[in-house]
Write a protein that binds this DNA or RNA. Structure first.
Lengths: 248, 248
DNA sequence: CCGTGCACTTCACGGCGTATAGTTTTCTCA
DNA sequence: TGAGAAAACTATACGCCGTGAAGTGCACGG
């Protein structure tokens, strides 16, 4: 809050710092307003005109901060995806280190909990964000995606001592994976072989499927207990991996 | 093609039958045009004006056939979802009956193959179809969803003789599931207990996750071999269920 | 104190869904 | 066969949307 001004001395906010600060504040307000609109009306409610209306501006004023609406959406995805990555990393870090099972369960539950608490954010990150939007190849969002994948690799690495015998016949090699992902994963988990990275992606698919079906309302039309389903499947998953259970 | 006229005699296409036939043809042309637009430009390309342009009409003419754009989209979803259900049911039916594993693999591969061949259709059915669209509670699409779930229940039923011991501690009861789903599943698979239906939904999540990540381009950014990943995970899944393998 | 640059507004264009009213074609029936 | 009803379709209009071009006013740097 008390800005890192940079050039000028202290109390008097003169100089170039002020303009930059105002600019940053407005940028943040635009993003906050957009996130608010998304929370109340879904990703489709993110329109430049609606944001401007809410802020008492003209829509075109936003073009001073974002070159286009897709740019704004990209920034939002970056933020939201990073928040998701933060959430699951925090859950992993704070889970009692009783054993792999506890941390794996904590990570997976955090993933689902975040998704159910931020369904619009989940759609923004993993679905069709907004009409006509196409995701860029690089930037913070792919970085966040790799953070999530790295977290998954952590799950795989934790389970690997137990699960390794089950994946002996895996035909995966390092060249089956994106270099940017391996740059993060291999230093973090040097003992994890390619088959272990593949396991991470399998876990991703496994968890993503149940959560996505639930967030998009498909699961809720078939069962009244998605909680139970997720919990049981999680226990089953841990068992399947050969990881010894610790507690529920 | 040679219409079922109804009232009038034969060659002369007079009477009410002709109008109805023309109406049905125009309706079909609208849907075909919409599907074509979706295939080329994604679900967002489905606009009444674009359809009308393509057909040499005014946009408002479509209102004679569909009350609103969402109605049209709903109809498209119905068709596409039914096509998906047809595809997986056909794969199941035509798979060599060597054993459960073969049929399970056939079903799962058909699901993924269809999704990759019709990515826009997959998005239409399982994602945010179009801005602001909200799915109706009943109609052909939910029916198709239940058909797919019933197919999944078939997988579960086929695996159940082997997998049953693994799910002894399942806490599911009949009241955990939608009545409409059970109306289809229980007559088809009388021996499948609630835990087996739950297994069907777990399988759904499992497969959906990998396929959805791939269709939406998230998986392809991490691995260059999604095929291999899906295939290995499928084998792993069958093994995990305790189903004896037959062939690749 | 003047000039420059930035934040912002105004106006405009084309595209969207859709409501209302009017027009043309087609079928029905006395 | 001809009048009337009904259906199919067009025309016009409204309020949304993203976005481009041009204009305005104020804060800043020299």
């Amino acid at each position: 809050m008390t800005g890192t001004s940079g050039t000028t001395t202290g109390t008097a906010p003169a100089g170039r710092g002020r303009r930059e600060r105002l600019r940053a504040e407005t940028t943040a307000e635009i993003k906050d307003t957009a996130l608010g609109l998304m929370a109340s009306g879904g990703p489709d409610a993110i329109t430049l005109r609606a944001i401007a209306r809410e802020m008492g501006m003209t829509a075109n004023a936003i073009y001073g901060y974002f070159a286009t609406r897709d740019d704004l959406v990209t920034t939002l995805i970056d933020d939201v995806y990073s928040a998701l990555a933060d959430a699951v990393e925090a859950a992993w870090a704070h889970a009692p280190a009783e054993g792999p099972a506890t941390r794996i369960l904590a990570w997976a539950r955090a993933f689902r909990t975040w998704a159910l608490a931020n369904p619009e954010g989940f759609r923004l990150v993993y679905g069709d964000p907004v009409p006509g939007y196409r995701a860029p190849e690089e930037g913070p969002a792919p970085d966040a995606a790799r953070r999530v994948c790295t977290g998954l690799a952590g799950l795989a690495a934790a389970a690997w001592p137990y699960a390794e015998p089950l994946y002996r016949d895996s035909a995966f090699g390092w060249d089956d994976f994106d270099a940017g992902l391996l740059d993060k994963v291999r230093p973090a988990f040097p003992d994890l072989p390619p088959a272990g990275v593949a396991l991470a992606l399998r876990l991703w698919g496994h968890l993503h499927g149940l959560v996505a079906l639930e967030v998009y309302g498909h699961l809720g039309r078939q069962t009244t207990s998605p909680d139970k389903l997720f919990q049981e499947e999680l226990n089953r998953l841990v068992t399947t991996l050969g990881v010894p259970k610790t507690s529920g």
